[in-house]
Design a protein around this nucleic acid. Structure first.
Length: 598
DNA sequence: TTAGGGTTAG
């Protein structure tokens, strides 16, 4: 319909036919044109239609006015949308909702909330569409709770559409408990609602709860769709539970989604990649009948996480030769691969070429990879200069990368500078911990201790390190010095025996990584009871000899655990794969795939 | 007659 009208009205050619009475009086025709311009994000033609409406006096008519606001919103011309809204003489509920949605979609949070708040004095009764629109505006938790209150007063809390918008808002704000509460109050859950709840958990790294919801959905006999599988695969990737991931693989394959949906196939590559199964990830990629740029991005990211920098660069070249146009994420993946593999020159060249050869503006994250590369290769002066020459105000990540470089090179002065910047910007514990580590590495325990008291005074808590391992379909989680596991006695006794063997093989506890100035022996015990070692010990005693172990850590692996795991892999003749917060380590026969660069 | 909730890679 829209296409025929476009031809009749002659929008694509010139204006003259548009003036003809038979078409201008046709509200439906204009509506179809505006909808089409909105869908195609075609601002130029959208403005021409607007001009005609103005000329023939239709501009202020409610129905077409609403569609004008929508068209401008979809074309990201937000001030035009606001003007169109203002010129609607008799605004109806749609006018308000569409205006809020347009602001929300264009990231104009305050304006969206502003319009929402004007509705009450204007005596417009909000409906579910109003709440759905404003809840998508990217509210913070406080604003979100205020809107939740008005949802409550409107009696719409149990409506599945509003509830989904509400719980997604809570998920985006990091409050999964609030999201869950909303979810549990919906009397008739529909699939979108289930999917949103799983996604909210995944977004917040709560893979276990995400899978719990997924299993409940299955128990209740709800039929999944593509989005459900994407969310569930993400949950598996987050936890690295390959057993569950494999069964999902089978199901999406049976449902035909593996061949028809790029998103599903790409999520499978990601799931296998994050679960440490590089071969399976590559197999999916190679077996895809066709790929999109995201398939390449996922594969390159997987290579990067595994320290395969050269391979990532080679395959990036291959993707270009095959005619794939790289995007900003492709470059981020390759740069991160360079950064994990220490490919300094390639990384520096690539950063320049993103803009010069491909016309893509590098983001701060692209710069950070190179700051990281420079910092860790000891080029701290260049790293700091790069931060200061970036075309944007440095964010936390920039100083954190520099501080990481200072930690590797024990650069106290520059480290203090970066820490000072970070302490103003963030309430996170990592600058304190990194800087204290720098002081401890030069054995200045006074300063390390002083920093620790500042941390305590400001009530900044160190994020607890956790490691976990899947054994026979169950996930076992450990904190340092864990006393909760049912088999704790065996684990600690096993570690004591292992410690003796480790020392025989030349392992010396790296007490420099201990934060505090306690007696040497106590430090050694603290190190031996790190969460990584507990998880590995439990894995060793619960799985058959010779079988590989896969351990996850929520933070970066500690240097002492890294050194110990190399030797553990050697003396137990096991392959041990560890996924930490930034990458994979494959330990085998006394060596790690990262070549001690991480 | 209009729109509005969930969607891969970082």
């Amino acid at each position: 319909m829209a296409l025929v009208l476009t031809v009749q009205v002659g929008l694509a050619d010139n204006d003259k036919d548009l003036g003809q009475e038979r078409f201008c009086s046709n509200t439906e025709a204009y509506a179809a044109l505006l909808r089409r311009c909105a869908n195609e994000r075609n601002l130029v033609d959208g403005k021409r239609v607007h001009e005609h409406l103005r000329r023939y006096g239709y501009e202020n008519e409610t129905f077409l006015g609403n569609l004008l606001v929508q068209m401008y919103g979809k074309c990201s011309s937000i001030d035009d949308a606001a003007l169109a809204f203002d010129s609607i003489r008799k605004k109806d509920l749609f006018s308000w909702n569409i205006m809020i949605a347009a602001f929300a979609e264009n990231g104009c949070l305050d304006r969206a909330v502003g319009v929402f708040e004007l509705m009450e004095p204007a005596r417009i009764k909000r409906n579910r569409g109003t709440f759905v629109a404003v809840l998508a505006a990217g509210l913070d938790l406080e604003q979100g709770k205020k809107i939740h209150d008005s949802v409550h007063s409107s009696g719409l809390e149990r409506n599945e559409m509003v509830a989904t918008a509400l719980l997604s808002m809570y998920g985006a704000c990091g409050s999964t408990d609030d999201a869950r509460q909303v979810f549990e109050q919906v009397p008739k859950l529909d699939l979108v609602c289930w999917n949103a709840m799983i996604t909210a958990y995944v977004q917040n790294d709560r893979g276990r709860e995400a899978l719990e919801i997924f299993h409940r959905l299955e128990m209740e006999g709800v039929k999944c769709n593509e989005v459900t599988y994407l969310a569930a695969l993400d949950a598996c990737a987050c936890l690295a539970v390959q057993s569950e991931g494999r069964s999902l693989h089978k199901r999406v394959s049976e449902a035909g989604l593996l061949l028809t949906s790029f998103k599903v196939a790409n999520s499978l590559i990601n799931m296998y990649g994050k679960s440490g199964n590089l071969e399976a990830a590559e197999e999916i990629f190679e077996s895809m009948p066709s790929r999109d740029i995201s398939s390449w991005n996922v594969l390159l990211t997987v290579y990067g996480h595994n320290g395969l920098g050269d391979l990532a660069v080679d395959r990036f070249t291959e993707s270009c030769l095959e005619g794939f146009e790289p995007d900003s994420i492709t470059f981020l993946a390759v740069l991160q691969a360079c950064s994990h593999a220490g490919l300094l020159d390639t990384g520096v060249e690539l950063l320049v070429s993103i803009q010069e050869d491909w016309g893509i503006d590098p983001t701060q994250y692209h710069y950070l990879c190179v700051v990281d590369l420079l910092g860790r290769s000891g080029e701290l002066v260049r790293a700091e200069a790069l931060i200061n020459s970036m075309p944007f105000e440095p964010e936390e990540g920039a100083w954190r990368s520099l501080l990481g470089g200072c930690r590797v090179n024990s650069d106290v002065g520059r480290g203090e500078r970066a820490t000072q910047r970070l302490l103003v910007m963030s309430e996170d514990s990592s600058p304190y911990v990194l800087m204290a580590n720098i002081y401890a590495s030069i054995r200045n325990f006074d300063l390390a201790e002083r920093l620790r008291s500042v941390m305590a005074d400001r009530n900044v808590k160190k994020q607890p390190g956790l490691s976990w391992i899947e054994v026979r379909g169950r996930i076992h989680t450990f904190a340092a010095n864990d006393k909760l596991h049912a088999r704790k006695e065996e684990i600690y006794a096993g570690l004591d025996r292992l410690f003796v063997e480790l020392q025989r093989e030349g392992y010396r506890p790296d007490t420099r990584v201990a934060l505090y100035d306690v007696e040497e022996e106590k430090k050694v015990r603290m190190l031996l009871h790190h969460s990584e070692k507990l998880a590995i010990m439990f894995g060793l005693m619960s799985t058959p000899d010779g079988s590989p172990l896969f351990v996850l850590k929520n933070l970066r692996v500690c240097a002492d655990c890294h050194a110990a795991t190399k030797i553990i892999a050697k003396i137990t003749k096991r392959k041990i794969v560890m996924r930490d917060a930034s990458r994979f380590h494959h330990f085998e026969n006394g060596k790690c795939s990262c070549c001690d660069y991480w």
